[in-house]
Design a protein around this nucleic acid. Structure first.
Length: 317
RNA sequence: GGAGACGUGCCCGAGUGGUCCAAGGGAACGGUUUGCAAAACCGUAAAGCCUCCGGUUCAAAUCCGGACGUCUCCU
């Protein structure tokens, strides 16, 4: 059994393609979109509909609450057994989504670094609040020059993470990195798990894509995105939950709280953010040279053909 | 009809006589990315004869007059 990755920027037709493929060749969908994990947010995430999910089973959707955000490592721990189970059941797996970092975590695993303990986080918080980023930079300079060089002085987030790793494990974060790079390079496929993988990357030329994004944003607003957010506030969510700071939701909150004066302004902000997201997704997936690129609308037949050929081929041992 | 305010790059906007070939944002373009990733971070270029006309001054985006435009208030 095989693994087909359907990746691509937001609003590039991944859901449809995955469902079409599953209908044609059998198998189930495993999501790798970071925001589809949250059960409370639907409209702004362009989640597959109940109808679509009834046709083809989808996994890793609605698996947690916005109160309990998952990170890439949590995702990997939860999604890996799901994929393994499907493969054991002789089902093809369609890994579908746009969060490249999460996909990478699932395919290649994370560094060998335990989740930071509350004590270390407390220590880090206290130091950061008292003295800012400087002492962290100094610690890296002294103990982990690799990370010190690697991260820009304004990259507080990664700088602190590297220091926290040093405190917790007494090893250098940058060494974890190079070890990982070495071990992944020696692998036969671009997965560490020995899966037989085909990567289909869906992309639409930019001008066309912008129009799709605008249309989809209007559709989200017409379908009640603002109302969805209002309802969440009524249920006692604050809007500060991490997943509610994502595209569509933060702008809806800004509209509700009067930062955006009109719904048109809110809409324009969503479109801009979505375009920027699409750009960074393109940049991310451009690094993967094993992918095959398709136009989701024009290449429909070609996708079915190519992937059908892959699925029917025997796995090289 | 009357009174006032304003008019700076694609957009917002600072600047109120020399230090302005005009700050800062946003947008655009390119990139980084290993437990927040729809996050966070970095880099780049381009664009303004400072609405127009006239004046004061050694010197004006900045002061004065007029034109046009926008907005607010009043009758």
């Amino acid at each position: 059994m095989k693994v087909v990755i359907i990746s691509g920027p937001t609003a590039s037709g991944k859901t449809n393609t995955a469902i079409e493929l599953a209908k044609n060749f059998g198998g189930e969908v495993v999501n790798f979109d970071s925001l589809l994990l949250y059960k409370e947010i639907t409209i702004g995430t362009a989640k597959p509909t109940a109808f679509e999910r009834k046709q083809i089973p989808h996994h890793m959707i609605d698996v947690t609450s916005i109160n309990q955000p998952m990170n890439a490592s949590d995702y990997e721990k939860a999604a890996f057994p799901v994929v393994e189970k499907l493969l054991k059941e002789k089902k093809n797996v369609y890994l579908t989504g746009g969060s490249g970092f999460y996909l990478q975590a699932l395919l290649k695993g994370m560094y060998d670094s335990p989740t930071t303990s509350p004590e270390v986080i407390k220590r880090s918080e206290a130091l950061y609040r008292a003295e800012g980023i400087k002492p962290f930079r100094e610690i890296l300079r002294a103990h982990d020059p690799g990370s010190f060089e690697r991260y820009h002085e304004n990259d507080h987030y990664r700088t602190r993470r590297a220091v926290e790793h040093w405190w917790a494990n007494g090893s250098r974060f940058s060494e974890q990195r190079s070890q990982k790079e070495e071990s992944n390079l020696s692998l036969p496929s671009h997965s560490v798990h020995g899966w037989d993988v085909f990567h289909a990357y869906l992309n639409v030329p930019k001008e066309e894509h912008i129009r799709i994004i605008e249309k989809r944003t209007d559709h989200m607003l017409a379908s009640g995105l603002i109302e969805e957010v209002r309802a969440l506030l009524d249920q006692g969510f604050t809007g500060l939950e991490k997943p509610l700071q994502s595209i569509g939701y933060k702008e809806a909150l800004d509209y509700i709280f009067g930062v955006h004066k009109t719904q048109a302004e809110c809409r324009d902000r969503i479109v801009i953010s979505t375009r920027q997201l699409a750009k960074s997704q393109r940049t991310w997936f451009n690094r993967d040279h094993t992918k095959k690129i398709f136009h989701p609308i024009q290449d429909e037949k070609k996708i079915i053909e190519s992937i059908g050929y892959f699925l029917n081929s025997t796995q090289p041992e």
